[in-house]
Design a binder for these strands. Sequence first.
RNA 1: GGGAGUUUAGCUCAGCUGGUUCAGAGCAUCUGCCUUACAAGCAGAGGGCCGGGGGUUCGAAUCCCUCAACUCCCACCA
Length: 870
Amino acid sequence: MENYNPAEIEKKWNRHWDEQNFFHSEPDDREPYTIVIPPPNVTGILHMGHILNNTLQDVLVRRARMMGKNACWVPGTDHASIATEAKVVAKLAAEGINKSDLTREEFLDHAWKWKEEHGGIILKQLRTLGASCDWARTKFTMDPQMSESVIKVFVDLYNKGLVYRGVRMVNWDPAAQTALSDEEVIHRETAGKLYYLRYMIEGTTDYIVVATTRPETIMGDVAVCVNPADERYSHLKGKRVIVPLVGRSVPIIEDDYVTMEFGTGALKITPAHDVNDYVIGEKHGLEVIDVFNSDGTISEKSPLYVGEDRFVVREKIAVELAEKGLVEKVEEYTNQVGYSERTGAAIEPKLSMQWFVKMEKLAEPALKAVMEDTVRFVPPKFKNTYNHWMTNIKDWCISRQLWWGQRVPAWFLPEGGYVVAENADEALRLAREKNRALNMADLRQDEDVLDTWFSSWLWPISVFDGIRHPDNGDIKYYYPTNDLVTAPEIIFFWVARMIMVGYEYRHQRPFNAVYFTGIVRDKLGRKMSKQLGNSPDPLDLIAQYGADGVRMGMMLSTSAGNDIIFDEAMCEQGRNFGNKIWNAWRLVAMWRGAATDGVQPLASKKAIEWFGAKMDAVLGEIEGCFANYRLNDALMAAYKLFWDDFSGKYLEIVKPAYGEAMDSATLSATIGFFEKLLQVLHPFIPFVTEELWHCISDRGAKECVTVSDMPAPKSVDEEILSRFELMWEAVTAIRAVRKNRNIAMREPVGLMVIADGNFPAELSPILEKMGGLSQVSVVTEKPAGCDGFIVKTTQYFVPLGEAVDKEAELAKLTEELKYQEGFLTSVMRKLDNERFVASAPEAVVAAERTKRADAEARIGALRERIEALR
RNA sequence: GGGAGUUUAGCUCAGCUGGUUCAGAGCAUCUGCCUUACAAGCAGAGGGCCGGGGGUUCGAAUCCCUCAACUCCCACCA
């Protein structure tokens, strides 16, 4: 009747842990265990992916802490340059303010205000989940010391020649109006059209047909290119063509880049708006005509459509060309188009001056580390992906034409050129080495900011201030960190780069292992997203099932690297489990209220012996699971230990008869078990376990399960476990008989057994109690009028007098006999096979022999029973 | 166009370098129970030609080939 209600309790313990400062870590003599959180966007809100990710981290951290390690989980947020700036721009726009009307300083004021108001909400939400972060160490990637580290690294890499500035074709996001790195571009198949356009040969009425998907770029055309081997066009060599509408005369050039089979085998060259065209243009010394503005509208360089959007122009120009009879045909065509990861805008290749990091050298040690498992990937399949990317790594465009972020520490000089320095004063000093007359006012700092990932890649180092102070106590103690838990989506953005910079600045891996989570999907297998509206609000879930329930729901459905199909039913299971534990304690508490010094029943004594062994076995199992990052299996093992073995079996066995009291020896053993179970479960479901830990005894504020010592597994007496199994099989069989016969538990039945080596006589008291037996008696002959069953080789009989249905019993036994004989045949087939005996390992053959013996014994027993019945 | 992964009970998944415990778990389902911790529960039960086909082997869910379906990553063919 009484259900566990998590809400209040969870709040209470969260507060308590916080007050006690349990999660704060300082270096000491203990072994450290460190995790740095993948910093969520500062203005982000909690979604299911965060729940998954942070639950996993919390389980690891809490367990490590209980294992006596000095656990430190560093939380923090990321300034998410482009995403945050976009949000601020949108917010200002809603207020009628244009970003372009603001100065950089004014805009940043708004941005910081926004950050102060909305920033860090996600960290509060993480607390609700029970995340045991060291909140005093909370970092933000734009904290002054974090930014300083970023700048320091930029300058250092520049001085090492690993950062350079240059004009390159980059991915341009016309919505955010900034350059992007290759990783920020998502290619998607997009339905479009392939236009076949006629370019008149200069001075003739002849024309050449060119296929293009982007007619709006013709204003930037500077040539038409054909393959030199293409005989169809050999007569046009050296001729010129007129660009349609534009009227410009451009040359026909030859390059074997052109595929003769595609389209018409003639390609229009627009160096400003296509990477390949750019390469060809460079090769042939062609002009670059950029006909787009940075927002994707047509620029003044174009004679037509100035100021209109590129996609509008595409439609218009197609119509106009068609009217002029310059369109040969139009085909439906699907191709890969790049889109901005953040704004979704179609990427425009654009030639521009940007800052880059040279990656090749940085990648070397980082690649090696992963391939040799110095940095362990869980699951290892991601090594492939990583390997491929790292061996084909390209330079990283790190400048962004935004304001929110670390500003590029380069200062331009009036007479051209620039200096790179950690600050303006230093820049001036360097500038004066070139021109002594310069003043601060002559220097103009680069307007661009750095890619967000250029600060996040330092995260494991910079949160411990290891860039500015490489020898400080924190970085030396906590670095390298232990586990990184993150999504495979950011393996290149973040994981790879952290490893690279880790080796560059610490000559050490940043973490020992990376646990890649899956993507959270809904029941239909769709990725959970805001757009689809198929993602439940984690806070609603927590309100409904408790943080413990949600954590457990997440944990139960995850395994490393596999996507998880999230089902709320799993949270319900988690909630039910909390309730189960809660009620189990209520039962034990009742017993404690009335315990006596009475004699300990033999059944209880045996149960304690057994459950102790069982617990040790499961503790070992769990340890193995953790070693392999199989956290869901670890939880399931603990779950079954509590539910099936402890509640379902142990508590039932030691439960005193109605109206009787429990003896104190059994009581204290039971409470001891309960405590251990709470400890084992605590990393997964910290709240309910903490609550009960304090119900068990009145401990001081400092004695929390959170900081208790995890029970260690001991060697297990397998014999005890297997004897118990045999006994419990008999219990199940008796219960089945009851069910079949409609005999209620309270109605006692007898049990007779032909005791052999497989009869666990020492467990008879438990058998009696759990089977609701009047008594267990040993017989040598099978009695008449019985239902019976066989466990392994032992024959058991339940006397039922007239109630026995002889025919049914016979049928059951005959069927069992048939099965056993078939089984024996299959075993014999093997043992009679010389090649099997010769080539199979000793142990396998021995196992088969045992099976034969067991089967024969069972068959013997079955035959006897059948005979007797007849 | 390359590469990787997945395909085992209704659902979500385990099954490591091949060996029978006639393939396991949780959830769901079915049957019977409000038995004095818990109906968010208890007791029982059913359910799988391990994607299809072929091969290697004494033996294959497990190795090889092939086909199919789904997923993901990478990639500058207009």
